[in-house]
């Protein structure tokens, strides 16, 4: 077991060099989320209660499908960055923190793939 303090271990190594990118992607996706979320909410409101055939017909339109895919891409990327900050703020035990960060990546990636699969399947009419 090392007698060195946490600070002593990391001193001189420098930063991870990824902080600015995190900050910038958070803002980039935040800006993109404004129009994309409005479109997404509009899509949901105009289809809740509609027959499934209407939803399929809408998503078959390439513009709608691409906008939906972009919305999920931006929103999920934003979610992953945001939750990462929350985890790093509150989970301090190294093992739990790693587990939480892993689950954060898995959850957002799984939702993204699921959403893209659903959008593409409907759009291509398979």
């Amino acid at each position: 077991m090392s007698m060195r303090t946490s600070l002593g271990v990391v001193r001189g190594l420098g930063s991870a060099k990824s902080g600015t990118e995190h900050f910038w992607h958070q803002r980039l996706t935040a800006i993109a989320n404004v129009p994309l979320t409005i479109l997404l909410v509009w899509f949901v409101i105009s289809h809740l209660g509609s027959p499934r055939a209407d939803v399929l017909a809408s998503v078959r339109n390439p513009f709608v499908a691409i906008m939906l895919a972009l919305a999920f891409l931006s929103i999920l990327w934003h979610m992953r960055l945001g939750m990462q900050v929350v985890i790093e703020d509150y989970v301090h035990r190294a093992g739990w923190k790693l587990l939480a960060l892993l689950l954060n990546s898995f959850y957002t990636t799984a939702l993204g793939i699921a959403a893209f699969y659903a959008i593409l399947k409907m759009s291509f009419g398979i």
């Binding site: 949901v44 998503v59 939906l68 699921a114 659903a118 409907m122």
Partner: peptide
């Protein structure tokens, strides 16, 4: 998650 659930069900 609810939103994705709805999309998956529609597909």
């Amino acid at each position: 998650l609810l939103l994705v659930w709805w999309l998956i069900s529609a597909a």
